[in-house]
Nucleic acid binder design. Sequence first.
DNA 1: TTTGCATTTAACCAAATGGTTAAACCAAAT
DNA 2: ATTTGGTTTAACCATTTGGTTAAATGCAAA
Lengths: 183, 183
Amino acid sequence: MKYGLYGARMQDIADTAGINKALLHYYFRSKEKLFDQVFDGALSKYFKQMEVFSDKSLPVVERINRYIDQIIDFLSEYPQMSMFIIKEISTNPELFKEKVQKIKNPKSTSLISVLQESIEQKEIPEVDPVIFLMNLHSLCAYPFIASPIFKVIIEKSKTTWSDPTHEKHKQSVKEFVAFKLSN
Amino acid sequence: MKYGLYGARMQDIADTAGINKALLHYYFRSKEKLFDQVFDGALSKYFKQMEVFSDKSLPVVERINRYIDQIIDFLSEYPQMSMFIIKEISTNPELFKEKVQKIKNPKSTSLISVLQESIEQKEIPEVDPVIFLMNLHSLCAYPFIASPIFKVIIEKSKTTWSDPTHEKHKQSVKEFVAFKLSN
DNA sequence: TTTGCATTTAACCAAATGGTTAAACCAAAT
DNA sequence: ATTTGGTTTAACCATTTGGTTAAATGCAAA
């Protein structure tokens, strides 16, 4: 996930795993098949996070707040996940279209349709669902993607900036949601 | 920029440029030197965008709004810029630390110190400068990074979602800034 | 003890890839 | 007409890399 499909070397993967190249091929047959397993696993884990939106017993804002907690915890555990998925898709867009269909289960509701519904029922103000979804994901995911840069920028400043905690991060995203969706 | 240092092939670069491999090497000597020129150019262009913050004749919010317009226009022109820079840095963090020092000119003021100053002068409410900077960049840059995914998600929805325009995007980021920094 | 499977070792192969070179080509300036 | 410098062609090289193979080894269950 760190080096991507092109950058990763089978020998390095074997070394990191503490095995040898022969055994790596014994298990996965080829680099392509290994990549497929890693990529599919990542995609499916990522999509699983969206399932919160389907819980119709909760008000929209609450569902979104839970999603924020969940996805930020998730990305803390796998900081390279977003970058990996996006990078592979943007270098090879065809890859994605096939796989999304398989992964995405039909019973899960998309945030867009949830928002749309809530707007119709006047539960929340009229917001552009696509823009809102985009902003929300931006606030959650980008800090993990750009963290190597932020680290340098922050440590470059002579003053000691308190490393932004995940809790502060969550809080700021939730404030944004409240601002956008409160009546 | 699309395929990155590892993924790009000299032959493909030559083909895309409409020249042959020999001439490509004639100009750039090696893949590493070619990469350096591309990476340095990208980094310097990116940093140049930050110069708006230094214009002390304008109020902070105005400076930030101009930055938003500017960086979103900039990223529309070079959609792969963010991804490229971040990906290369995260695979090879050492690369960055050296180069930032050379690129960054000392007279440019960082947004963090601008915010810090404005807070002290009670021009804007007390916000965490690092969190704010992070959120701002997230909202601006992530949509371009994740656009391959968003395209699929949006086109997957049966309903035709109006492709979010750059103007709408800018508007939503500015609303966020107003929300955070208005007294 | 034997059987079977996971694992290692080490050598090997073919293809891809970065890089080089020498000769030829060509257009514009002299 | 000649020179010059950018450009092409095409062959070539060394290294890297994905992948294979065969034999040996270790090890746990039967």
